[in-house]
Design a protein around this nucleic acid. Structure first.
Length: 841
RNA sequence: GGCGGCUUGGCGGAAUUGGUAGACGCGCUCGACUCAAAAUCGAGUUCCUUGUGAGUGUGGGUUCGAUUCCCACAGCCGCUACCA
């Protein structure tokens, strides 16, 4: 499309309005105490998932969620809310550093350039952000408070009695030793087996491993000393408090499954003079334990293996450790394992059972050891079949299914004192017995691991930690932010030494003090950015008490609405909730949750129905769309595609469709010469039907925005435009009301037309129109008449016609008559204004 | 394997305290305008064997009436993966 074919001059007025909103600070949001702050306005906090500023720039998925929140934000402003809606950049992290290495430029340089490009793109879409609140996680002032929050974690412990975090200073006062305190800090150092990637030069969290492996990076398991965050202490609260949130049930379930709570018991088995603890969810089947399995990495394995089994055990262990993760997930392959030669004693009946090692038992979950009950566990059953181990029935199925491999609840048999008990009762009876005999106890186990929080890379927040004589201590608050030294060479070396160790002068301090050289993962910055939005330039606190109080209300979650993709369903949202809860426990924020309402936008697929990707060549660049059709058309199209949460394919023809709609609105008011059309008249609207459509539109668009049903709001505006087009004249008052409801969707076009037809005030500054109930009322309607549930006729009559009148009219209809002739009317269902169904035979 | 989501014209989708299936848009067809085309405007567009017809993935059920509620099954998409 060449310039001469533009149906309306969006390329002129879109930049014009953008710079006007910018220079007049139209969307600035005042905080309490600031100029323009109005105490009578309620707050509304709407949040986008801030982007990682990649070199590729914005893709069409970004404006989907951003337009949705922009519409909500603009709408709420017009409804008299003080709306907090701003934007920032998640600019630290491994991708930024990999990009810098690839391009040979320092990550600070590429990040700054990328942010600038993102900001340009976002501004070209006319989002009503308060840009004065923009932040980037790499800003030194932001880093300062990220590090400060880390130190809050570092100097806190989880008090089991009160089920909350408290300062470790309380333990000091109680006389706890330094070592004891270090063992309970929420941020602690541990030697743990971690996923290490030589070519990335860093460890990765369990959760990140798959992502980077998918990008072709090697990952291996090795023990390293790392910083961990004690998120497991919050497992139960992270589950329970989901119930207070207005999130999609699917996302809640994902988080619950991730945390993975299971109830059961720990049981202590004896292997000679050693005690091995196993975790089981089925203590009721203890009598059926016919063998035991340890994870190959279990520390007892070398100690209990008999001389004659040593070689096979060693060989098996070696095979397991060299097994890549891929092999392990290559599932449903035959179970493997070897006998250790050792024998364990079943505590409940003294049975001697063989001890095996097998890689189907994971060191990372439970105790790394299981009691195997092959009769009632699929995996154990498969293993027992393979190695010809004893299978003993201890549960009688509740139906006629085969007892072998029966895992559902039933009745205990062959189980001594449990015999005859239903599974549920047998479980608690066994736990009772275990406790009485000091052979075990009730146990709740979580899949959630503590959070591996350190990375060995350069582009992240350094830990504000110093070391002396093997002990760590906090950098004092006044010395924050602690910034990484400028480094020329930040490429991974292939050794697990953090990059920052290369900065020798930075690391070595007087008196034998050294700096911690690990850096934080990208998650750190994104865990609390919404808090900083509330008070972005505060240099005394991460958020002032006043700002925190103002942007919080009585709801459990601070942010009223959070919109973003499902890719963050677990990690980001779980980590942010964890940090927020710690800050809550320590009294720094007054809500227990960060995000009250969460909405996931659906993925936008390529025109071919496939996921957009460079290799498929189906990527749509928003810049191109803006250039061709304008920002309003892009915004409107992305909202018109379908429901926000649904996956939907891109269709360029669809963009043209909404572009044509915008052009129709334009032509309604503006002539080819650029003058106000004579059709627009400042007169009282006498066309009742037109008036009804306009008020219906005001009502529906408002309601649909509240429901986030933007596609149906737009279709109603199209109906309204069609009504205007068909009308002889367009009354200015009603047309302006229409422009006002269109404004959140197509802010540039609506402002421009409004400026030309009414002048004076900016549309963005006026109130949302109020619809007139009277105008909505219909007095007549088309009543649908069915005979035996089938549509036979439509008859005009008064909305409130009585059943008698309606019946009379229905029977008078020839079409109805045809179908009831010779039949007896058995029943009449009449719903005034809607339907009449005659049941006849 | 487990969990979750989805399934409506040629296409994106609309409609639920159960009440006219297919709003709105795309595409297509016809017409107006034009020397012609584009753009624009107007009319039409679920399907077929045009009927007292069929129809919201399939089969059943509840109901005067089901896209909507219940049961069973199938297909597609996403997440997860030996979690004891």
């Amino acid at each position: 499309m060449s310039d001469t074919h533009k149906a309306f001059p969006f390329d002129e007025f879109e930049p014009k309005w953008q710079s006007r909103w910018d220079s007049e600070k139209t969307f600035r949001t005042p905080n309490p105490g600031e100029e323009g702050f109005d105490t009578s306005k309620p707050k509304y906090f709407v949040l986008d998932m801030f982007p990682y500023p990649s070199g590729a720039g914005l893709h069409v998925g970004h404006p989907e969620g951003y337009t949705a929140t922009d519409i909500i934000g603009r709408y709420k402003r017009m409804r008299g809310f003080n709306v907090l809606h701003t934007m920032g950049f998640d600019s630290f992290g491994l991708p930024a550093e990999q990009y810098a290495i690839k391009t040979g430029q320092h990550p600070a340089v590429t990040t700054a350039a990328n942010i600038e490009n993102f900001r340009r793109q976002l501004k070209s879409l006319g989002f009503a952000y308060d840009w004065s609140r923009e932040i980037a996680t790499t800003d030194p002032e932001y880093v300062r408070w990220t590090q400060w929050i880390f130190l809050q974690l570092y100097s806190s412990y989880f008090c089991e009695e009160e089920n909350k975090a408290k300062p470790v200073s309380e333990l000091e006062a109680k006389g706890w030793s330094r070592e004891e305190i270090d063992n309970v800090r929420l941020a602690y150092v541990a030697d743990t087996p971690v996923w290490w990637s030589p070519d990335l030069g860093t460890v990765l969290a369990n959760e990140e491993v798959e992502e980077w492996k998918g990008k072709g990076h090697a990952v291996e398991r090795r023990p390293l000393r790392q910083w961990m965050l004690r998120i497991t202490k919050y497992a139960q609260r992270l589950i329970d408090e989901l119930d207070t949130l207005d999130w999609p049930e699917g996302i809640k379930l994902l988080q619950k499954n991730w945390i993975g709570r299971s109830e059961g018991a720990e049981v202590v088995f004896a292997i000679e003079d050693r005690s091995v603890t196993v975790f089981t969810t089925r203590p009721d089947t203890l009598f059926g334990a016919t063998y035991m399995v340890l994870a190959p990495e279990h520390p007892f394995v070398p100690e209990i293996t008999t001389e004659e089994n040593k070689d096979t055990v060693e060989a098996y262990k070696k095979a397991c450790s060299s097994k890549s993760d891929l092999d392990r997930t290559d599932l449903n392959k035959d179970k493997s394992g070897v006998f250790t030669g050792a024998v364990a004693t079943n505590p409940v009946n003294g049975e001697q059972i063989p001890v095996w090692i097998a890689d189907y038992v994971m060191m990372g979950y439970g105790t790394g050891a299981i009691m195997a009950v092959p009769a009632h566990d699929e995996r154990d059953f498969e293993f027992a079949q393979r190695f010809d181990l004893a299978v003993l029935q201890v549960v009688q199925p509740s139906d006629d299914s085969d007892w072998q491999g029966y895992t559902a609840p039933g009745t205990a048999i062959n189980s001594g004192f449990l015999d005859g008990m239903p599974t549920k009762k047998a479980k608690s009876a066994m736990i009772h017995w275990l406790v009485e005999n000091e052979k075990g106890n009730r146990k709740i186990q979580y899949k959630l691991r503590d959070w591996l929080f350190s990375r060995q890379r350069y582009w992240g927040e350094p830990f504000p930690i110093l070391w002396k004589d093997g002990q760590h201590f906090a950098v004092s608050d006044e010395d924050l932010p602690l910034l990484a030294p400028p480094l020329e060479d930040y490429k991974p070396s292939g050794s697990p030494e953090p990059i920052l160790t290369k900065a020798k002068e930075w690391v070595q301090l007087p008196d034998g003090v050294t700096r911690e050289t690990n850096t934080m993962p990208q998650w750190a910055g994104s865990c609390w950015y919404y808090l900083r939005y509330c008070d972005p330039s505060n240099s005394d606190r991460f958020i002032s008490k006043e700002a925190e109080e103002y942007w919080t209300d009585e709801k459990p979650g601070m942010v009223d609405l959070y919109v973003g993709g499902t890719e963050h369903a677990v990690l980001h949202l779980l980590y942010a909730r964890f940090w927020h809860k710690v800050l809550f426990d320590l009294g720094h924020v007054r809500t227990p949750e960060p995000f009250q309402k969460l909405v996931n936008q659906g993925l936008i697929m390529g025109e071919d129905g496939q996921k957009m990707s460079k290799s498929r060549g189906n990527v749509v660049n928003p810049d191109d769309v803006v250039k061709e059709y304008g920002a309003d058309a892009l915004r409107l199209y992305e909202m018109f595609m379908g429901p926000l949460e649904q996956v939907k394919p891109w269709q360029m023809k669809g963009v043209e469709g909404v572009y044509r709609f915008l052009a129709r609105v334009w032509r309604l008011a503006i002539t080819d010469e650029g003058k106000v059309s004579g059709k627009i008249q400042n007169t009282v609207c006498t066309d009742k039907e037109l008036l009804r459509v306009v008020h219906e539109t005001i009502k529906k668009v408002g309601e649909d925005i509240e429901k986030l049903s933007f596609n149906t709001a737009i279709s109603q505006m199209m109906i309204c435009t069609n009504a205007f087009t068909q009308s002889e004249t367009v009354p200015l008052k009603e047309f302006t009301a229409f422009l006002t409801v269109l404004n959140p969707f197509a802010p540039h076009l609506s402002e421009e037309i409004h400026a030309r037809t009414c002048g004076s005030e900016m549309l963005s500054e006026i109130d949302w129109p109020v619809y007139d109930e009277q105008a909505l009322i219909r007095t007549e309607c088309e009543l649908v008449v069915q005979v035996n549930g089938k549509l036979r006729d439509r008859i005009w009559m008064a909305m409130d016609a009585t059943e008698e009148v309606a019946k009379e009219k229905a029977f008078a209809s020839a079409k109805v008559k045809e179908h009831i002739d010779g039949k007896t009317i058995r029943k009449v269902i009449y719903i005034p204004g809607k339907i009449m169904n005659l049941v006849a035979n």
